[in-house]
Every structure is written in structure tokens, then in C-alpha cells.
Amino acid sequence: MSDPTAAVLDDLRAEGDELDRLVAKLDPDAWRTATAAPGWTIAHQIAHLAWTDGAALLAVTDADAFAAEVEKAAAAPDTFVDEGADAGARLAPDELLGRWRHGRARLREALEAAPAGARFPWYGPPMSTASMATGRLMETWAHGQDVWDALGRTREPTDRLRHVARIGVRARDFAFAVRGLAAPGEAFRVELAAPDGQGLWTYGPEDAPQRVTGPALDFCLLVTQRVHRSDTAVRAEGADADRWLDIAQAFAGPAGPGRAPKGA
């Protein structure tokens, strides 16, 4: 396994552990706290992570069985995610937490054992080991954000956001395609201020005429659709870059509805 893959697996573990420490302290009633996702409580958020970790484990270990799950998803594209979350959210908090812990540990072990060059099916394009781990980290961070917000807590951003930012940039063309739009023909320059304020994360040609700039945290919140664009300090130069910020999504599957502006 390459060092970059080991690094993202370590960060995936850290991201899950941070959220685990937060929810493990909650009393049973707090698990029923509503989050910003309509109809989803904190229990739904953790149940969704457990469910998608299970789907990822299936993709890594049994491609044929995962293909059957993809067929089920295709037959009910508007409901299959909610159904998975609903089923898990009905469990007692201790049971749900145990299931999530067990599932994410098994997935990490399977990814660590994957042969070099392995690729796994997914709901979007096939994933390498590093890409699968990055995707799981992105979802853990994004759904974790909903939990932190629901509890009125502020989470300190870390350099693990680099993985979320990278997948958001790489998913640019997918965000257009999933909406039936032609992807821009040229690369954008993306420049993001690191969470510690000491560095700049850059993607794309330095001389690209279309650009996206802003804080890395705001960009990550935007591409995971945790905030409305108007509530960020992310800015675009160029018509296509501007359009991208309206539709950006870092996750596979149908186009998400996004979040309403604060105060709306």
C-alpha cells in the first residue's frame, strides 16, 4: 500500500473517531434531535454512515452482491438513501453506535488489505482504495457537520479537509453531468486558504482564466451541500466557474437539493 493511501486511511479513522467521541456522550433523547437534513435526526445521520460503510464494504469484498444493491438503488433513486437511514435510526442508540463502529472498522481493514491497483464499483465511477477511503472520509465529515450543527457545537477544522476539497474539485464534471449539463471544456484554477491560515491549497493551471477562491472550510461546506453558496466566502471568476458553485457536489448519486440561505 502506498504512503498516500495509508495517510488517507489514517485520516478516515481520525474523522470517524472524532464524531464517535461526540455522539458517544449523548443521552438517548439527544439522538432524536433534528438536523438540517429534512426528516433526519442525529440517529439518521449516524445510521446513514453505518449504511454507506456497509455498502462500501460490500463493494470492496463482493462486487456481484454490490451490483445487486446498485440495481435496488436504481429502482428507487429518490427513496433508497432515506430508507437505509430510517431503518438504522429505529435502533436503540447503543446498538446503532456499535453497528457503526463495527462496520467502519471492518471497512478500514478491508481497504488496508486491498491489493495495489485495486478498483471497486460504486454508485458513481469505480473507486481506487484511496478514492474509496477519501469518499468515506468526505461523507463522515459532511454528516458529522450536521450533527455538530444540530447540537449547537462548533467543530475546529483540520487539515483532513484537504481530502474533502480534493474530491470536490475532482467531482466538478460529475456535478454538471448529473444535472444533464455539458461540463466546461477547460480546467479551473482553485485556490483555497488552509484552515490554519498558513497555506494555500491549489488545483488546476495557475494561468486558467476561470477561478474559484476562498476559505477551504467554506468550499468543503459548499461542495458537500451543507451551506448555501451565499453564506460562504467562496468566489468565482468566469461564467462556468460561477455556475459550478451553484451546483457543486462532492458526493455520488442524484443531484442534491442543497441548503437554503441562512434566514430564509
Results as ranks from 00 to 15, higher is better:
1 M>T: 13
2 S>P: 15
2 S>A: 12
3 D>L: 15
3 D>V: 15
4 P>H: 07
4 P>F: 07
6 A>I: 11
6 A>D: 14
7 A>C: 01
9 L>A: 06
11 D>M: 06
16 G>V: 12
17 D>K: 10
17 D>S: 09
18 E>W: 12
20 D>G: 07
20 D>I: 11
20 D>Y: 14
22 L>I: 15
23 V>P: 06
25 K>S: 14
30 A>E: 14
33 T>G: 01
44 H>T: 12
45 Q>I: 14
47 A>I: 14
47 A>W: 12
50 A>W: 13
52 T>L: 11
58 L>C: 10
60 V>P: 02
62 D>S: 06
62 D>G: 07
66 F>K: 01
68 A>L: 13
68 A>H: 10
68 A>D: 14
68 A>I: 09
73 A>W: 09
74 A>L: 14
78 D>E: 15
80 F>D: 00
83 E>I: 13
91 L>H: 07
98 G>M: 09
100 W>R: 09
101 R>W: 08
102 H>C: 04
103 G>W: 08
103 G>H: 03
103 G>M: 07
105 A>M: 09
109 E>S: 13
111 L>V: 04
112 E>D: 12
112 E>W: 06
113 A>D: 13
115 P>R: 05
115 P>F: 10
118 A>D: 04
119 R>T: 15
123 Y>K: 00
124 G>L: 04
128 S>F: 06
133 A>H: 01
135 G>C: 01
136 R>P: 08
137 L>P: 06
137 L>A: 06
140 T>Q: 11
140 T>P: 00
146 D>K: 06
146 D>R: 07
153 R>A: 15
153 R>P: 05
158 T>R: 12
159 D>N: 12
163 H>D: 08
164 V>N: 02
167 I>E: 00
168 G>F: 03
170 R>I: 09
174 F>D: 13
175 A>C: 06
177 A>S: 10
178 V>M: 03
182 A>H: 05
182 A>W: 01
187 A>S: 11
188 F>H: 01
190 V>S: 00
192 L>K: 02
194 A>K: 02
195 P>R: 04
200 L>W: 04
202 T>H: 02
203 Y>L: 00
204 G>W: 09
204 G>P: 04
206 E>Q: 07
207 D>G: 00
208 A>L: 01
212 V>M: 06
216 A>F: 08
217 L>P: 00
217 L>R: 11
220 C>H: 03
220 C>E: 02
224 T>G: 05
228 H>P: 06
228 H>C: 09
229 R>N: 08
233 A>Y: 10
233 A>R: 15
234 V>M: 03
235 R>W: 03
237 E>F: 00
238 G>E: 03
239 A>Y: 03
239 A>I: 13
242 D>K: 01
244 W>H: 02
246 D>F: 03
249 Q>A: 08
251 F>Y: 06
254 P>E: 08
254 P>M: 07
254 P>G: 05
254 P>C: 05
256 G>E: 08
257 P>W: 11
258 G>E: 05
258 G>V: 11
261 P>G: 07
